[in-house]
Design a protein around this nucleic acid. Sequence first.
DNA 1: CGCACACTTGAACCCCCTCAACCCAAGTGG
DNA 2: CCACTTGGGTTGAGGGGGTTCAAGTGTGCG
Lengths: 269, 269
Amino acid sequence: MRTAATSEHCNSRFGIERRDAGLSFPPARPSAAQALPSKCAGCGPRQIAICAAVPEQELARLSAAGISVPIEPGRRFMEEGEAAENFFIVTNGTAKLLKMLPDGRQQITSFVGDGDFLGLALSTQYSYSVEAITQVRLCRFSRPRMRQLFADFPLMEKRLLASACHELVLAQEQMLLLGRKSARERLASFLVHWAGKSEPTSLPGGSRKQILVKLPMSRSDIGDYLGMQIETVSRTLKVLKVAGVIATAPGWGVMIQDLARLQALSGNV
Amino acid sequence: MRTAATSEHCNSRFGIERRDAGLSFPPARPSAAQALPSKCAGCGPRQIAICAAVPEQELARLSAAGISVPIEPGRRFMEEGEAAENFFIVTNGTAKLLKMLPDGRQQITSFVGDGDFLGLALSTQYSYSVEAITQVRLCRFSRPRMRQLFADFPLMEKRLLASACHELVLAQEQMLLLGRKSARERLASFLVHWAGKSEPTSLPGGSRKQILVKLPMSRSDIGDYLGMQIETVSRTLKVLKVAGVIATAPGWGVMIQDLARLQALSGNV
DNA sequence: CGCACACTTGAACCCCCTCAACCCAAGTGG
DNA sequence: CCACTTGGGTTGAGGGGGTTCAAGTGTGCG
């Protein structure tokens, strides 16, 4: 519980010294925008996204910078190699980040959901594609707008660093999984991870604490995420099922019967 | 270059030319220790590390914050799970980042060299270990010192974000490799990547442009990096050798005979 | 109903792992 | 000087986990 230098709670105010190509601070007629409640005010994921760095009384400026966009399931709204013109923040739904090989093989590097930031690119092009799995709603920011936001609210960029840092840790974890774990361990790790995002629903019978995991993605997506074929996913799920560790839940979900055993099977002890 | 957004053209390992002509820094009382030449002044990797955000006349403060430390080959100077008390910047040598499974299996998530930053942790603990491969020299910064540096030189933190961003891209590339590529493709990709770090040595015979790649790490390290066994590394190298794509070089190096074919074999076309 | 689509199941194969021996260069010590 | 050890790398034989190909089973939707 120590003060993290790089990430959380950075109090230091400092003037961002970037030449912002003519963009200057006071763009706002604050009174007018302030009157009506900004759309950001009612945004649930705002609290966990990097937007939390914007104080309540400044939400109007945040709202003015971003445009809310709906995306249909299956639609790609970011393409590897395309010009990186926008940043996105997911406000609703689930999407997948993926990289492709020329021959069509693909690897999903992560699933993103509420509050996740998209569009970090070190060059002028995106290095991966993003495709909506469920119905997705997101906030789009042009690069200049986002730059302006960072200039106005330096804390935002600090939160972004913390977020990138978090993703790096997850990526390293995934590399360990892909490089060194067996199919059963991969699937177990995957389920344990998603179990952590679901609240445990105590069984009415009361015998054991079960966890219902909603899996929005297809078997094919799971395979592309875990580096295995769809058939192997199916077979391995069955193995876990006959072992009594999990059970199929209605509507593309999985009911975890024995989290402890699942964790043991994940290889992480 | 082009209009710079948050992390444009920022590359932690290679030159970042975000020079800030006409930028003013916060208060910064003029250092008294300006007289003697600071050790940072003669530091080669400084230009490519996040230290490049510190202007020349302020190098004394940078020098005061960091402590230069030598590390013997094979020595671990960061351990997964340990309290994250320090940040490091590699000024010389090569080290490996690794994550371990309880049963001993391990995955190397990346190799780091001159100018690379280490120690980003989102919690109070390191999420991976770092072990020196060659003789390594690095600069150690305590968290409070680093925090102070970030407060004094905000550009440093921006460069850090760019660096983390770059590592994320590399991590995604590696996930694609680990999840979807065959052994031969992995090794080819690995060699192509390291060939990019070596300057091509034109063959005296003049027949073809060859590239001598110095590989400081062992076969075991290569295996742990590419997610394959050491025997498979050895066998696959031989396959490439008899195919005439590479040749063994004296002193643990590899001579790339046909970069084009190697790239074709890497699966990236 | 019938088509489409996702998932499951089955059987054969093969790439890579596992285990084991071997090679070779560098110490080390008598 | 040679015997011995040690550690990294190579080579060989065999087996298995996961892929590949193919067919079968739902299930939603026109």
